[in-house]
Structures are given as structure tokens and as C-alpha cells.
């Protein structure tokens, strides 16, 4: 076995232990020694995991793999136990069984027999694991697909289609009372008439040209081609805005982790 990985692992382990010892000594007054040791361990472990994930930027390595697998495993287990306690124990058992409610120490509500339907569908879904009874899972899947489609259709139709179209039907001439009034009350403020007119015009033009860009039944030439090219520009501006926000979001996450390392772990800055 090569010595390099062993030396690096030993150095990381040593560094971890030193950090654990130092951070265990910095627990708030009044906390027990056990709490202080636990606090020191979890703080050091969190810092280790942060650095392990960030180490991927240099190159893939076993510390990154460890942190990644730990995250996936813990998340899966956490979701499963959360689902059990928040759905089965909190919502189902109090409606189907007094004994189970007492066992899990939740208040029994009343017998509601239609609440047997979800667990039956759940069991049917698990039948997928059975080689012979796998077809039974299709009933539960059909229920899920049907319900989701039924719920989503009016949802999209209303909020993403009708509402969005109606909010695009904007008056181009906002509060128009003639040129005299327009020039007399001319203002460049965001809520002013001029900015509102330009803004509404751009929204209507942007939507029309954006749609034209995706219209492929006619060749993009002449005025139609010019509108299509303007549509591309509108799309590019949109992507640019999204990219700018994305950069800010990613930097925010980096700031969050570095603040944790510099403040909570190393104590260099005050939070």
C-alpha cells in the first residue's frame, strides 16, 4: 500500500482530534463535560464534512466520497423515519387504531374507515418487490398518476396559463390623456407614466417575439425573422438574469459555509 494516502489520512485524523479537544474546551458555562465533548465533536465533524465536500473542487478523493455517501445515507434514513412519524403515527394511526395510538402515545381521534385506503394502496405499491404479485403495484401507481394529473391540470391551466396570459394583456398607453398631459407630467420615476408605457410595451413585444422564435411552421425571414431574432435577445436577457441570480445564490452558499468555518469553527470572525 502506498504511504501517501496513509500519511494524509493520519494527518486529517490527528487534526480532527486536536480540533475536537480544543472545541470541547470552548463550551458555554454551565454545560456538563459530556455536553462539551459532544458539542466539540459535532462542530469538528461539521467542519470536516464541509472541507471534505469542498475538496472535490481540487479533485475527487476518498474524503469527498465519504461525505457524499454519508449525506445520501443519512438523508434517506431521515426521510424514512420522518415519513413514519409524521404521516403514519401522526395522521393514520389516530384514525384507524386505538391500540396503535396508545402504543405510539398519540391522541386517538376517531375511527375513520376510509383511512384504510392509503395503507392498502401503500402495500400494493410494495408488491412491486414480489416477482408474482408485481402487477398489483400498477393499481397504486395508476391512482398516483391519475390523482397527480387531475390535480395538476387545473393548477397549470389557471396559474401558469390563464393568469399569465391575462397579465400579458397590458395597456400600451397607460393613463393616456393626450400628448399635452404626457409631456407636462413627464417623469422618469419607476411608477411614472413614461416608464409604465415602456415597460408594458416591452412585456407585450417580448412575449410576442419570444413566441415567434418558437414558431417553426414559417421560415424566419424578413419581418418575421427580425421578430424572431428579437425574441432570441429577450430569451438571452432572461437567461442572463437567471445566471446572475444563480451566481449570487452559489456565492451565498459559499459565504455560508466559509462563515461557519471562520466563525463557528475557527472563531476568527464574530458572528
Amino acid at each position: 500500500m502506498r504511504k501517501g494516502p496513509i500519511i494524509i489520512t493520519a494527518a486529517v485524523a490527528l487534526f480532527f482530534v486536536i480540533s475536537w479537544i480544543i472545541k470541547s474546551g470552548g463550551a458555554p458555562e454551565g454545560s456538563s463535560s459530556y455536553d462539551a465533548i459532544a458539542e466539540g465533536f459535532w462542530l469538528t465533524f461539521a467542519a470536516f464534512l464541509t472541507l471534505a465536500i469542498l475538496s472535490f473542487l481540487y479533485k475527487d478523493n476518498p474524503f469527498y466520497k465519504f461525505a457524499e455517501h454519508l449525506y445520501v445515507g443519512v438523508s434517506a434514513a431521515y426521510w424514512m423515519s420522518l415519513g413514519f412519524w409524521t404521516t403514519l403515527v401522526a395522521n393514520l394511526f389516530p384514525r384507524i387504531s386505538m391500540t396503535l395510538s396508545e402504543w405510539f402515545q398519540v391522541e386517538f381521534i376517531s375511527y375513520q374507515y376510509h383511512f384504510w385506503v392509503p395503507p392498502i394502496l401503500g402495500v400494493l405499491l410494495l408488491m412491486r418487490l414480489s416477482p408474482k404479485g408485481g402487477w398489483l403495484s400498477r393499481w397504486a401507481l395508476a391512482f398516483i398518476v391519475g390523482t397527480t394529473a387531475g390535480l395538476n391540470l387545473p393548477r397549470f391551466l389557471r396559474s401558469d396559463f390563464i393568469e399569465q396570459i391575462s397579465s400579458t394583456m397590458l395597456p400600451i398607453l397607460v393613463n393616456w390623456q393626450g400628448f399635452g398631459d404626457f409631456f407636462t407630467n413627464f417623469s422618469l420615476s419607476a411608477s411614472g407614466q413614461f416608464v409604465s408605457i415602456v415597460s408594458n410595451f416591452l412585456v407585450v413585444l417580448g412575449v410576442l417575439c419570444g413566441i415567434i422564435y418558437f414558431f417553426f411552421s414559417k421560415e424566419h425571414k424578413g419581418a418575421f425573422g427580425a421578430a424572431s431574432r428579437f425574441g432570441i435577445w429577450v430569451l438571452m436577457v432572461t437567461f442572463g438574469a437567471s445566471f446572475g441570480y444563480t451566481v449570487m445564490g452559489r456565492i451565498s452558499l459559499l459565504v455560508g459555509r466559509l462563515t461557519f468555518l471562520l466563525d463557528d469553527w475557527l472563531g476568527i470572525i464574530s458572528g
Binding site: 393568469e163 391575462s166 397579465s167 412585456v203 432572461t238 441570480y245 444563480t246 451566481v247 452559489r250 451565498s252
Partner: peptide
């Protein structure tokens, strides 16, 4: 919203949703 999502939801602001 997170920065990544923000730009996508301005149309809902414009529509008053």
C-alpha cells in the same frame, strides 16, 4: 426564494399572484 429560483417567479409578481 433562493437566488437560482428568483428570476423565474417575477411573472407571478407581475400577474399579482
Amino acid at each position: 426564494l433562493t437566488g437560482v429560483m428568483a428570476a423565474d417567479y417575477y411573472p407571478y409578481l407581475k400577474s399579482g399572484q
